[in-house]
């Protein structure tokens, strides 16, 4: 009798062990799968995405009074960070929208447009042409473009007053959408 019970107990133990072993292996494999998927997803969305802190940088400012602009100095304001170039047509299309909304939000939100053009001359002409008054920066060594891992132009980051990226928009914006995004990053 006790022998049978002992055998049964042994069997149960064995079964438990087996279940544990299989569960551990399956869990480990599942973890690897999830890891692969998440890292792949992050890769697609560039290294910077919604929820990340906007990395600080400093660039030469081509218009206005200031010589340079440091993103860290804009703390407390919402930031619309726009990457563009003079030869990029959709960038050109959205510039007037940005200019038209700039006066309205000026005190709460800074619109910062980073040009990745090679020469200052073409940017100057462009700025004069469209009478742009928000800060235009020149990233001639593509340092900031690399830092933000910008792909196609235009790409726009909407950063809230705490320095957190709230929205990343790749491609051109309409006036209504732009207004909506700017509402999202207004200081409280």
């Amino acid at each position: 009798m006790s022998k049978v019970e002992e055998a049964k107990k042994q069997k149960r133990n064995k079964k438990k062990k087996r279940l544990l072993f299989r569960s551990i292996i399956l869990l480990a494999l599942l973890a690897a799968l999830i890891f692969a998927l998440i890292s792949n997803f992050n890769n697609d969305e560039a290294s910077l995405g919604v929820g990340d802190q906007a990395p600080p940088f400093q660039l030469k400012q081509l218009n206005g009074d200031a010589e340079t602009l440091n993103l860290a100095d804009l703390e407390g304001k919402g930031i619309m960070l726009n990457f563009w170039a003079t030869y990029c047509k959709p960038c050109e299309d959205e510039m007037p929208y940005m200019q038209s909304l700039y006066p309205k939000y000026k005190d709460d939100i800074e619109i910062v447009a980073v040009s990745v053009d090679a020469t200052q001359l073409v940017i100057d002409r462009f700025v004069d042409n469209y009478n742009l008054t928000f800060p235009i920066l020149h990233d001639n060594k593509e340092q900031v473009m690399d830092l933000y891992n910008v792909g196609p132009l235009p790409t726009t980051y909407f950063i809230n007053p705490d320095g957190e990226i709230v929205e990343v928009v790749s491609g051109p914006l309409t006036l209504e959408r732009l207004d909506g995004y700017l509402q999202q990053i207004l200081p409280e």
């Binding site: 003079t86 030869y87 090679a118 020469t119 001359l121």
Partner: peptide, 23 residues
């Protein structure tokens, strides 16, 4: 004075433009 500079010149809808930033 240089009024306009097109590094990579082409005509787009009758308007002179630059295709890229490279000369």
């Amino acid at each position: 004075m240089i009024d306009q500079y097109f590094p990579d010149y082409y005509i787009d809808d009758g308007e002179p433009r630059s295709q890229t930033k490279n000369p």
